[in-house]
Design a protein around this nucleic acid. Structure first.
Length: 319
DNA sequence: GCATGTCAAGTTGTG
DNA sequence: CACAACTTGACATGC
């Protein structure tokens, strides 16, 4: 036990950023020399199967070690959450060059590193999440799009289980002229997912189509939480205030007894001119909602300067 | 070495 | 009607 005074004076905790707020870093690092590798199907296709698998094996193990290094970094700097990039195991579900972990020559080493990651995140209470990209859509009228999306979600669910990741956050998808029937398709397809995925799945309001107002009913019906992205809400308003949207999101997490996840970013070109959607390098502290400051929540920071932006925001709240 | 074009995938809105 | 934008970068290729 450290005394209050000693705690305040010591190392990395010497700021008054709201203690209950956990900041999260998304996917990659800017300055820190931690890199994730990837590859393309086109490149892999020129090699025979066994060569492909050797290359993929090297990349997967490299990425596992990078994630472990990344977790040590965030732990050291008091960053409490990390979002894992989607191509962590690149092309895993690709129809031509896809694979399973046991296909990889170094799979025993890889499984070992995955379990080290899980152990580390558990010991240091670092929240891990996945955020499938824009092609992953459960509301599409095209069966093939949905089938591909389910495969990809199952892949992320599997990895999430291996590394102890808690959430897989996705968007509502397209509108297709009728949000209501689109969300009905989402609901039907949700029930095709394994418990490994459904227990982790969350919905996030996006900057073009689905708002908090649109998603709250389906979140309630499916008993899944809503990840509230306040930047998207400001880009794509729905008549709800930030305070009310925050309250609705909190309730959805409370219902499942988990710490809420919110997203924050600042517009690259300001709120006045041009499109506000592109993300800025850093977070303008003025964009941090006042009503979040006394909550026990996780806030993922979506900013191009990555770890520098997270640390700068922490510092803003210092003294 | 460094600049450039390309990379699995869907959808919407802009010009 | 084509194309950029989306969480964006990483990589192979060619100069």
């Amino acid at each position: 036990m450290v005394s209050g005074m000693a705690g305040m004076m010591s190392g990395t905790s010497d700021n008054n950023f709201p203690a209950a707020i956990r900041l999260g870093l998304c996917c990659i690092f800017k300055n820190e020399p931690i890199r994730f590798r990837s590859t393309t199907a086109k490149y892999l296709r020129q090699f025979p199967r066994d060569v492909q698998r050797a290359q993929l094996s090297t990349i997967c193990q490299h990425n596992c070690l990078s994630l472990l290094a990344g977790l040590r970094f965030v732990q050291h700097y008091g960053i409490g959450a990390f979002r894992v990039l989607s191509p962590f195991f690149p092309r895993y579900t690709h129809p031509d060059v896809g694979y399973t972990i046991t296909d990889l020559p170094e799979h025993q080493k890889i499984l070992h590193t995955l379990s080290q990651i899980k152990q580390y995140q558990d010991r240091h209470d670092i929240r891990l999440s996945f955020h499938p990209d824009q092609f992953i859509i459960l509301s599409s009228p095209q069966p093939q799009v949905v089938a591909n999306s389910i495969n990809e979600l199952e892949y992320q669910g599997l990895l999430a289980e291996y590394i102890g990741a808690e959430t897989i956050t996705m968007h509502g998808g397209g509108k297709y002229d009728d949000k209501e029937s689109a969300l009905l398709r989402f609901t039907n397809n949700f029930h095709r997912l394994s418990p490994r995925v459904t227990s982790r799945l969350t919905l996030e309001n996006d900057d073009r189509v689905y708002t908090v107002h649109d998603l709250i009913p389906i979140c309630t019906r499916l008993n899944i939480p809503l990840v509230y992205d306040v930047h998207h809400h400001r880009c794509n308003p729905d008549g709800l205030s930030v305070e009310v949207a925050t309250e609705l999101a909190l309730r959805s997490w409370d219902r499942v007894g988990r710490e809420p996840y919110f997203h924050l970013s600042s517009p690259k070109n300001g709120w006045q001119e041009g499109r506000p959607e592109p993300h800025a390098d850093y977070i303008d502290p003025a964009d941090f909602p006042e009503c979040w400051k006394n909550l026990r929540i996780t806030v993922d920071i979506e900013a191009k300067a990555k770890e520098l932006a997270v640390l700068a925001l922490k510092k803003t709240f210092t003294v």
